[in-house]
């Protein structure tokens, strides 16, 4: 079996925030609270969950942009926080993140050429301006901004939302990374163009052997991306992965009550089906705060299938079949192990 390119082990990222505007006491936001997964080269993992469940924080931690409070991130088996400077810089180059907002993440006073050539020159991928220009033209071609010499001297504001997102993808792949973390890359662009960006990422992954973590709150996009690329979906709730498995099996046969509820709630572009989908009623509509997550299973305050044990103990994420993982007492023997 191939060695994993990335292993995330019991990762926790806590933020310390002031309790109130005038208060000096602090509390901890448990943005990511014990996440474990591993990926092999070329794997696709889509992380899906509601706003605030910790997706971006997890992505940033993987890209080395946020320091974990505890846990480990291994790149080819090596802990990134025990790497020497050179190894760490190499890691940072190899993991590129595409951020949520295509409008905020491009410098408005730089031309497309500048935007693409800066990382190429900084990382020494090209030897000079002339080679940088050639490489930039190639990159524009690759991401479908054609003809490239038309786009190369443009400024970001002269591009449409979809074109900007393509430019951001070009910049991310310019340094020939091994892992791409794409955080909601399609949320801010027009509906009609979204699948085009996902197809581009899938195509690049095939051509360049990229490993891709795709972050979204949209189950339809999660299914499209992971199912088309033969990858997994992991569902997050309040800082934890509650369920993980191959895309179609998670979507068509969800196991965790949270996943089931979300999937039942998603409107579908098919009126008869959307109106007759089975509804699942939650015990409460409100998401608890990540500052004080509920004890036991974090979902128990809302879960329609709540049992007593759920508020007492935390269900572990267990391997149910060879490719499905779930964290729920409906699937775990808990009685005999009760302490």
């Amino acid at each position: 079996m191939a060695e994993p390119i990335l292993e995330v082990l019991d990762l926790k990222v806590y933020f310390s925030v002031k309790k109130g505007i005038f208060s000096s006491t602090k509390s901890l936001v448990r943005a990511v609270d014990g996440v474990t997964f591993s990926m092999k080269e070329g794997d696709i993992l889509t992380i899906v969950g509601e706003s605030g469940c910790g997706k971006t924080t997890l992505g940033k931690a993987v890209a080395g942009l946020v320091k974990p409070s505890s846990g480990k991130i291994l790149f080819y088996g090596k802990d990134i926080y025990s790497m020497d400077k050179k190894e760490y810089m190499n890691y940072r180059r190899n993991v590129q993140m595409i951020h949520q907002d295509p409008y905020a993440s491009l410098n408005p006073v730089k031309t497309v050429y500048k935007i693409l050539s800066t990382p190429l020159l900084r990382w020494g991928i090209v030897s000079g301006e002339e080679e940088a220009r050639r490489r930039a033209l190639d990159l524009l071609e690759i991401v479908g901004l054609t003809p490239p010499d038309y786009f190369i001297n443009k400024y970001p504001h002269q591009l449409s939302g979809g074109q900007r997102q393509r430019l951001i993808v070009a910049r991310a792949i310019s340094v020939e990374p091994k892992i791409i973390v794409a955080d909601e890359p399609i949320t801010m662009i027009d509906v009609s163009l979204r699948l085009g960006i996902l197809d581009l990422l899938l195509d690049l992954r095939k051509k360049m052997g990229l490993t891709v973590i795709f972050i979204t709150h949209d189950f339809g996009a999660a299914r499209y991306f992971s199912a088309k690329g033969g990858g997994d979906i992991a569902v997050m709730y309040l800082g934890k992965i509650v369920e993980k498995g191959p895309a179609e099996s998670v979507i068509q046969e969800p196991l965790h009550p949270y996943t089931k509820t979300l999937i039942a709630a998603v409107p579908e572009p098919d009126p008869k089906y959307s109106r007759t989908k089975e509804r699942i009623r939650l015990r409460s509509l409100d998401i608890p705060s990540p500052i004080n997550p509920p004890p036991g299973c974090r979902f128990h305050t809302r879960c329609p299938l709540y049992m007593e044990v759920c508020s007492e103990r935390e269900p572990p994420l267990v391997q149910l079949t060879n490719d499905r993982e779930v964290s729920c007492f409906l699937y775990t023997e808990f009685s005999e192990k009760k302490a």
Binding site: L193, V266, D270
Partner: peptide, 15 residues
Amino acid sequence: SVPGLKGDIEDMRPI
């Protein structure tokens, strides 16, 4: 162009 949870993925495509 809108990916649903049912239906064939091969039928879905951008405009």
